[in-house]
């Protein structure tokens, strides 16, 4: 049976296989490498125009996401091939052929051996002991308490606002915050505020970066609570691995904490979130 490539490209079964493989490549590596590559491409245009470099960061995709996406793609493929009677019949053809066709006996036997072995291997991979810590299921932004005690004083989170925003010169607070940051926060949160300080690689969970995805989603009161209470003050849903962040209320003064918050938002170039009713996960 010698058929041209176009036969296979038009056959629903091989189309399905092709789409599945392509999606895997896209999910596994596309998400990781495409955005930065695109960013660089766009930069080729924006940079000469004086708009600066476009930076679209990405990172390896976690396994849980790969599994989730591939399951979705598989469901979609099944829907596609079975949605049309003719297509569904042709899709089943090769499967049926492998099962019954005498000429494909070798392939059949090979598959009948390979398939159980594959399942067994996957099961083994799942069940074997590893030295890595179990999958972390922390909530990064835990629900804030309605109130907490700051140095023995009870503070209502909803009534907490940054006093430095209304008093004194913001410029000075910013400089004071910078001093606090570089004296205390730098080793973990890093010079670039990207959460990659010298010590960062030793911690799990890793220190957070300060950017659009983190502090821009939070109110200043929330950030104050996190700084003041640190890892020990995290609620239960953030366990099992509480962060290594110290409870800064024992080290910094209230003004120092507020000033470093001013510094963080200024430096990240984002606005703190105001308390609204929007939820989300």
């Amino acid at each position: 049976m010698n058929r041209g490539a176009s036969y296979y490209l038009k056959h629903p079964f091989w189309q399905a296989v092709l789409v599945l493989l392509a999606s895997y490549v896209l999910v596994k590596w596309g998400i990781e490498y495409l955005p930065p590559a695109l960013g660089s491409l766009v930069s080729l245009i924006t940079e000469p125009l004086g708009l600066g470099r476009v930076n679209w960061p990405s990172a390896p995709v976690p396994r849980s996401i790969v599994v989730q996406y591939m399951l979705t793609v598989m469901v979609a493929i099944l829907i596609y091939v079975s949605e049309n009677e003719e297509r569904w019949r042709r899709f089943k053809e090769p499967i049926r052929a492998v099962m019954v066709e005498p000429s494909l006996k070798n392939l059949r036997v090979a598959l009948l051996i390979l398939f159980p072995v594959l399942v067994g291997w996957a099961t083994y991979q799942q069940a074997k002991g590893t030295v890595s810590a179990p999958v972390g299921l922390r909530t990064i932004h835990p629900a804030a308490p309605t109130q907490f005690t700051f140095r023995g004083r009870t503070v209502l989170l909803s009534e907490l606002s940054n006093p430095l925003r209304t008093t004194g010169s913001l410029e000075e607070h910013y400089r004071e915050g910078m001093r606090v940051y570089y004296q205390n926060c730098l080793p973990c949160h890093g010079d670039l505020l990207n959460g990659r300080g010298h010590f960062a690689h030793g911690f799990n969970p890793a220190p957070l970066p300060f950017d659009v995805s983190t502090i821009a989603q939070l109110s200043e009161a929330f950030v104050f609570w996190r700084i003041a209470k640190g890892g020990p003050g995290l609620p239960r849903e953030s366990q099992p691995w509480n962060s290594a962040m110290p409870a800064w209320e024992n080290i910094l003064t209230e003004e120092e904490i507020w000033s470093v918050i001013v510094f963080l938002y200024e430096q990240a170039g984002v606005e703190p979130r105001r308390l609204t009713e929007e939820g989300g996960h």
């Binding site: 976690p62 922390r138 909530t139 932004h141 799990n204 957070l208 970066p209």
Partner: peptide, 28 residues
């Protein structure tokens, strides 16, 4: 559907977290 069902906080192992540079995936 893929977009909708993508969680904000991902389920990741220690190694994946290190590779991502945090609990959040910069693109996802």
């Amino acid at each position: 559907w893929i977009v909708w069902a993508t969680p904000h906080t991902l389920i990741v192992t220690r190694e994946e977290q290190a590779a991502m540079g945090g609990q959040f995936h910069p693109f996802l």
